[in-house]
Simulated assay, not measured.
Amino acid sequence: MTGTMYLIGTGPGDPELLTLRAARLLATMPAIAYPTTEQAGAMAFDIARAYLNPSAQLLPICLPMRRDRAPGKAAYDQGASVIQTQLDAERDVAYLCEGDPLFYGSAMYLLERINAPVVVVPGITSLTAAAAAIVRPLAARNETLKILPAPLRDERLKAELNSAPAAAIIKLGRHFDRIRALLEQTGHARNAVVIEYASGQNQRITKLADFAHDARPYFSIILCSAGEEAWAKT
């Protein structure tokens, strides 16, 4: 017998966007694990803080934000071991994840490392929160929407954009300037919008053409369209 691990999406930033199911589970969960980084802190924990069982044991898992994957693998191995110890003691554990656990979420790396039942509680993604922030559809009718990570190489990104009426560029950070140049080449820059920290207290919305500030936050997304719908022609 073991406990159950719950992968809980905390949503994009606004604590009120946490789902009712997530809030109900967190209120009684005996152990709470969550990712933390030196650069970004513990965003998922901060979002869910008000909903947590006050007597829950807290299990922070420090994840390095590096291009080299070896330190990350070691951190997930160590974090999984801490969680597994709780599960083997027949204690349920919730692992918090920004947005949705299985949408580019760190929770996915625990799945292969944990030997216990797993329940996934979906969360609202930054993608839908960003669209809500600018009150603009992601795509419509027969349009296709592509979600493109900014670290992809220029050639791959350009090819994907050239066949995409609508696109969302995620994981911007230090890739921002080259992404802007690529969007200008493919015709997606005309109505592109940068949404930083969607739904959070420090949310900021800027047209790509007007984006001049130096900050390049990792938690930002560009929504753009080169399709035939009205919002693609503004």
Rank of each mutant, 00 (worst) to 15 (best):
I32W: 10
A130D: 07
A75Q: 02
A150N: 03
E155M: 04
R113C: 09
L17R: 03
V135F: 03
A166S: 15
M1I: 06
T186A: 03
V194I: 13
R91Q: 15
I222G: 02
A23F: 01
A132G: 14
L17H: 14
Q185N: 04
A209R: 12
V193K: 00
L183M: 14
L20W: 07
G187Y: 13
A164Y: 11
S81R: 15
T2I: 05
D88V: 03
G72R: 12
Y6G: 01
E196I: 04
A150Q: 01
E196N: 00
A94T: 07
A74N: 01
L208N: 12
K233D: 06
L148D: 05
G187N: 08
N162M: 15
R66G: 04
A31K: 07
T186K: 03
L172S: 09
A22T: 00
L63Q: 02
L172F: 12
S81G: 11
E38N: 14
V194R: 01
E112A: 02
R190V: 04
F219M: 15
I222D: 03
F219Y: 15
R178K: 15
P165I: 06
A209H: 08
I61M: 13
I195K: 01
A75K: 01
G123I: 08
I8N: 04
N191A: 13
P64Q: 02
R66Y: 01
D14S: 12
P30S: 12
A133I: 10
A33D: 01
P165S: 10
L87T: 06
L87K: 01
A140N: 10
A116L: 06
R141T: 12
I179V: 15
A140M: 15
E98W: 11
G227H: 06
A107P: 03
T186E: 05
T28F: 08
F176W: 14
A166R: 09
S81P: 00
K233R: 14
D14H: 10
V119M: 12
A230L: 14
A31Y: 03
D177I: 05
A230E: 07
G41E: 14
D88M: 12
